[in-house]
Amino acid sequence: MSDPVLEVSGVTKTFGALLACNKIELDLQPGEIHAVIGPNGAGKSTLIKQIAGEQKPDSGTFKFAGHNIDILSASQRARAGLVRTFQISSLAGEFSALQNVMLAVQGASAHTFRFFKPVQSDMSLVEPAMEFLKNAGLEERAHTAASELSHGERRQLEIAIALAMQPKAFMLDEPMAGIGPGGSKVLTGILDQLRQQAPILLVEHDMDAVFSLADRISVLVQGRNFATGTVAEIRNNQAVRDAYLGEEVAS
């Protein structure tokens, strides 16, 4: 294996008496989709938040693109190319779809503290943003307020924003949540495209999607990394089946 893009070592996080993450070890290799699955409360979301820098682990370290990122703030990690999406769409609702993507292009460019040039005519923002929207199939909705987009469109917009960040790694927190089967198929296609851009750490409940897309799977149970392996290994791991998968995927 080559050097991992993202390395999680010994990450522990407690909330009072609750042990949310227990010495988690995990890595993300170039080009792969690494799915993290597990029952509710297994610590998946907490793990994502810690990698993104929104929460601080009690102990453990994160390495991203060969560098220790423990001291970086959430915004600094995002700017470094560690880009996440949210379980529940998190957009600037009053902004148009275009403005949402422009904000991402601006964030990635690290030139926010400019006070005079109007953004509407700033082609270094508008043009790439439009391009990302086009790729996400949202070109015609560019000037619609984000709050007025459909659920599926908002999901697509989040992907466009993530791409606009010029990511070196994606963290997708349940991208399939709340989308019907049709939308789910579209997103599955999009995820397959995303991996061309950067490897993906995928937290997902939709087992069909996970088993068809992922290269490797980690199973989190009660804050512990229970098992990591290829799809086939996980599918055939008796302990995993007992602990989590049940009979659902046995066939």
Binding site: A52, E54, A92, L103, Q106, G107, M165
Partner: peptide, 9 residues
Amino acid sequence: QRVTSVGID
């Protein structure tokens, strides 16, 4: 949250 996640503090 959105602003943070696009790399702006």
